[in-house]
Amino acid sequence: MASWLRTFGAIAAVVAVIGALGGFNAAASARRSAAPGTVIDAGRLHWTVHDVALTDRSLADYEIEPSLRVRVTVLNTADDTVLWLDQGTVELVLPDGSVLDDLNWRSATRSLAFQPGIPADAYTEVEVDPARLAGGVVVVRVHDEIPYQGGITTESWQVDADATDVSVEVRDDRAAR
């Protein structure tokens, strides 16, 4: 038999065995639930989701497009200052099932940095079509972070599939129309 055919057959056999043992199946991720105001242990950061509001005014009180504003408190329990978070660390799941994951966290009064041992109040604002909020409940999904050491960089943290869902009724803070 041609050598290439033997090689192909060997590879196919290995792949078949891996598949039979479930090696190609997506790893099951843990999904927990928590109420607003509960402290969520997501690894190095502990999150408390306070509320979610639909608003058309910024915190500086100027007009903005309709936006969801999520307020949280974050406690850094790691050894080092955390200056940024990977995309997808926190996601917003709308009533229609769509997921918003590119969230920019800020402080209302100062430059945001998560210093070890100091709770930091933060918020994020993301524009949204109010029509997509029918049902009025948004899920704030806080993913776990796990240590990662690899490649040519120092140890860092990566977003894990495991997460905690906080279901929050959206408060309508828009100006009376």
Partner: peptide, 11 residues
């Protein structure tokens, strides 16, 4: 005790 704090960059 092994913690590391970066300086603040507030204005």
């Amino acid at each position: 005790d092994g913690h590391s704090y970066r300086q603040l960059d507030d204005s």
